[in-house]
């Protein structure tokens, strides 16, 4: 089976179309989506309609959750006060334009999806807001895959795609007066699908991944599209112009926790 996994579309209809076209050419069997369909971009309703009409299994992202539940992204998940204030403006705008049926759709999205030994989440199995950064401590990353009871964990949220193989970790627990307990994990994988609509890898191109279950091969795809169209629409819709400026440079900053193990204690 060949899966395409997309994430973090953020109301960027142009980018979504380009990615779907690219997926068509790759002849995949199934598409999965890891959420964040809305927020920042100018076409939240259109993006959701497209995902729905294609019946793409989707889990809920932090933006989808916030739009449904009211803004409750914990403050610590924003990298700066500036990002937070901009995030709020994007939230207010999206909240105003979203159609009721779109909101209902977002509300019923599951937190995770499962297919055999594969698990799909937006941020991490713990929370839609947690970042699984590629440099996170290997044993902490391993714990996330085990928590998902999977061999391959698909996530998004960081907007930079990567694939990470975790091999041969050994943990020993020694309790006073008892025989030590030893644990050895089999090979695990984390696959980050990047971002269709708000890339952060320094180029404006959309990113997503393809996973082949037979060969266990992961392909990171980078798809050019007419981002100027999205930038124009951002300005037209009255969203903060800086979103367009950042989108054109692949330096969207959405939410990003500085500390990969950041613990929300709200």
């Amino acid at each position: 089976m060949k899966y395409a996994v997309i994430s973090c579309i953020h109301g960027n209809y142009e980018a979504l179309n380009a990615v779907l076209l690219d997926i068509d050419r790759q002849r995949v069997d199934q598409i999965y989506c890891l959420g964040d369909l809305v927020g920042y971009g100018p076409y939240p309703n259109e993006v959701v309609e497209m995902i729905r009409s294609l019946d793409i299994p989707t889990c809920q992202g932090c933006w989808d959750e916030d739009i449904v539940m009211g803004l409750n992204a914990c403050e610590c998940s924003y990298p700066s006060q500036l990002a937070e204030k901009r995030g709020r403006r994007a939230h207010e705008w999206t909240n105003r334009v979203l159609h009721p049926e779109v909101r209902e759709y977002l509300a019923q999205l599951p937190m995770s999806l499962r297919q055999g030994n594969l698990c799909f989440v937006h941020g991490s199995p713990n929370s839609q807001h947690e970042y699984l950064l590629p440099r996170m401590h290997g044993f902490a990353a391993l714990e996330r895959v085990l928590a998902a009871q999977a061999d391959v964990l698909f996530c998004g949220h960081t907007h930079i795609p990567y694939v990470r193989y975790l091999r041969e970790g050994k943990i020993r627990v020694h309790h006073r007066g008892e025989t030590p307990q030893e644990f050895q994990a089999s090979v695990k994988m984390i696959v980050n699908a990047g971002s269709v609509g708000e890339p952060r890898h320094g180029r404006p191109n959309a990113t997503y991944v393809i996973y082949d279950t037979d060969t266990q091969e992961v392909t990171l795809r980078e798809v050019p599209y007419d981002y100027q169209k999205t930038c124009a629409a951002i300005l037209e819709q009255g969203l903060p112009p800086i979103f367009a400026w950042r989108l054109a440079r692949g330096m969207e900053f959405a939410e990003r926790a500085d500390d990969p193990h950041h613990v929300c204690q709200r």
Binding site: P134, R135, G138, F139, A141, L142, I160, P161, Y162, V163, R164, Y165, L166, R167, E168, G169, K170, I171, R172, V173, H174, H201, T207, V218, L220, E222
Partner: peptide
């Protein structure tokens, strides 16, 4: 608790 020898290989664009 002690942990060791976990190899992590990361591939990016």
């Amino acid at each position: 608790v002690r942990a060791e020898a976990l190899t992590s290989e990361v591939k990016t664009l």
